Amino acid sequence: MDGGVAIGGRIGPNAITRMAEALDAALPAAEVDALFAAAGLAAYRRSPPERMVDEREVAALHRTLRARLPPARLEAVTREAGLRTGDYLLAHRIPRPVQALLRLLPAPLAARLLVSAIRRHAWTFAGSGAFAAWPGYPLRLAIAGCPLCRGMSAERPACGTYAATFERLFRRLVHRRARVTETACEAMGSAACVFELRWRRTD
């Protein structure tokens, strides 16, 4: 296993802004305003964050959504937020030459290089949590102290936003059939939130 511990308790603004976009696409603006107000984040509806945000704010938003949205709507919205985050990273954070190179490489090598880049930037999405990766197949990614489900109790995995972000990146840069499944979640009592990546047709 290799990994690194993210320091600090702040997360990139995508955790708020992309979720707001996903909610706006699914719900009337007044309902989204009410959700942000319930999470104590009404100010972000007036002025979306442009810098790192307190991870406790992100956790509060996810707790509020879990408490107030029907399960199917919650799953759809959190996945959409993750996909939008992946699209933003592809458009603004991963250089085009790097993307082109990864697409030319065999999937196992491209996956290893992409994981290395994710590890270097894990502090931007894991906050004070610890990111780790297990090479091999299926590839496994984990976040211990996950800020998205902190303080939650759930019967199903609660970190669909991360799963969708990882899936978008790996599908665009590693293999078009890549899929990511959250196989363990701290909200369900696990020691860490674990995501498995597969891309073989026979899986």
Rank of each mutant, 00 (worst) to 15 (best):
P71C: 00
T64Y: 11
E80C: 03
R68E: 12
V58D: 00
P95T: 07
P71Q: 13
V53D: 02
M52C: 06
A76G: 14
E55W: 03
I94L: 12
R68C: 01
I94E: 05
R96E: 13
M52R: 11
L89D: 09
R93F: 12
R73P: 00
Y88H: 14
E57R: 11
V77S: 04
A76H: 03
L101F: 10
R66Y: 12
V98D: 10
A91W: 14
L83K: 13
L102M: 09
R63W: 08
A91E: 15
A91G: 12
T64A: 08
Y88R: 00
E57W: 04
D54F: 03
Y88K: 01
P95E: 06
P97Q: 10
D87E: 15
T64S: 01
L74K: 01
E55D: 04
E75N: 11
L74W: 15
R56K: 10
A91M: 05
L61E: 00
V77W: 00
A76F: 10
Y88P: 04
A60V: 07
R84A: 09
R79H: 14
L83V: 14
A60R: 08
A81S: 11
E57Y: 07
A100C: 05
T85L: 13
E80S: 05
P70K: 13
G86Q: 13
L65G: 04
R56Q: 10
A67P: 09
E57F: 06
A76E: 15
L90H: 05
L89Y: 15
T64W: 10
P70S: 01
A100V: 09
R66H: 07
A100D: 13
E55N: 08
D54L: 00
G82E: 14
Q99L: 05
R68W: 09
L83M: 10
T85K: 10
G86F: 15
I94Q: 05
L61N: 04
T78F: 02
I94D: 02
E80I: 00
